[in-house]
């Protein structure tokens, strides 16, 4: 195995993992605030098509990503209005959002089928980003660095800031938070909007970075993976990072193992296809088994908040 090949594999892993990490971090914050938004996949698709359309029209992937974040946040506000203001069932509303997102992206994307968009410029200057070895550190899309920075940021926000503490409190015990005088609904709206924006950016990563050609349903269910990883990562940002990269690793391994033939091709392909999902879940379950007790779900997750006044 040459070093170039190893670097190619690492690139593949990072590209699979980053959008899952982005969407997962958004959903993690949403769930920490006590809201279960199952519409991640839908918001990703809305972000993907918006990002593609804006980039295609204005030629700037940065503008496209910003538009994707805003589109994701807007879509999440529909969910927020229904579940937080009107206290609708969060599971049903989230599923509806996913279905809506799929339909909307297919319709809006019709005009762009098969078109391509300009890629991001490198974040780091050319000798570093294009060096055959050093590109493993400096050569990624800016969104990859963004996802890692967000992971550190979200972990710090939740653990060390007052706003993060209030957000966790709202997810733990909405009535108490309300009686102390915090706006439960306000905090949840903010969290849901953040989750929507992150899902939108994750979606735009599919259409702008991973496959810069528009195709329907290009997120291929990764929003659901992000949702599941949040649970198996026990609502901890760094475990989510581990989970996302693990998933990326097994996914990439699968592709290369099949190509390598020999012993690997003897196994049925369905098993290979299931492997990334199985491995990720098994590993994260083992991690959370080891330290039991603290790894419980936010107590108010999915429950509508109905103040008695």
């Amino acid at each position: 195995m040459t070093i170039e090949f190893a670097i190619a594999i690492i690139f593949a892993i990072v590209l699979v993992a980053s959008p899952i990490l982005l969407a997962g971090l958004g959903e993690l914050v949403v769930e920490k605030a006590g809201v279960l938004n199952l519409g991640v996949e839908g918001m990703m698709l809305i972000g993907a098509v918006t990002g593609f359309a804006v980039t295609s029209s204005f030629g700037s992937p940065w503008l496209g990503t910003l538009a994707a974040a805003m589109a994701g946040a807007t879509a999440s506000m529909i969910f927020g209005f229904l579940t937080l203001t009107l206290a609708a069932n969060q599971v049903a509303t989230g599923l509806a959002l996913t279905i809506f997102g799929g339909g909307f992206s297919a319709l809006a994307g019709k005009a762009f089928l098969g078109k391509t968009v300009p890629a991001f410029t490198q974040l780091f200057p050319s000798p570093l980003a294009t060096d055959p070895i050093w590109r493993v550190v400096f050569g990624y899309s800016p969104l990859v660095y963004f996802s890692l920075a967000m992971c550190i940021g979200v972990a710090w926000f939740l653990k060390s800031t007052r706003a993060g503490l209030i957000l966790r409190a709202v997810g733990e015990n909405d009535l108490s938070a309300h009686s102390i005088g915090y706006s439960v609904t306000g905090v949840r709206y903010a969290a849901v909007a953040f989750g929507g924006a992150m899902a939108g950016i994750a979606g735009s990563m599919f259409s702008l970075v991973l496959t810069p050609i528009w195709a329907e349903g290009l997120t291929a269910g990764r929003g659901w993976i992000a949702l599941a990883l949040v649970v198996f990562a026990a609502w901890k940002p760094y475990r989510l990072l581990v989970g996302a990269y693990l998933f990326g690793a097994v996914m990439t391994l699968e592709v290369h193992a099949k190509a390598a033939g020999g012993v690997f091709s003897a196994l049925p392909s369905e098993l290979w296809a299931a492997l990334p999902y199985l491995m990720t879940i098994i590993v994260l379950v083992i991690i959370s088994l080891r330290r039991s007790g603290n790894s419980v779900a936010p107590a108010c997750l999915g429950k509508p908040f109905l103040p008695t006044i």
């Binding site: 966790r168 409190a169 108490s176």
Partner: peptide
């Protein structure tokens, strides 16, 4: 009925108030 947050520490609970 104490308006406490079970999963948080004593310090965090007081900080919230």
């Amino acid at each position: 009925h104490f308006s406490l947050f079970e999963a948080l520490t004593v310090l965090e609970n007081i900080a919230l108030g």
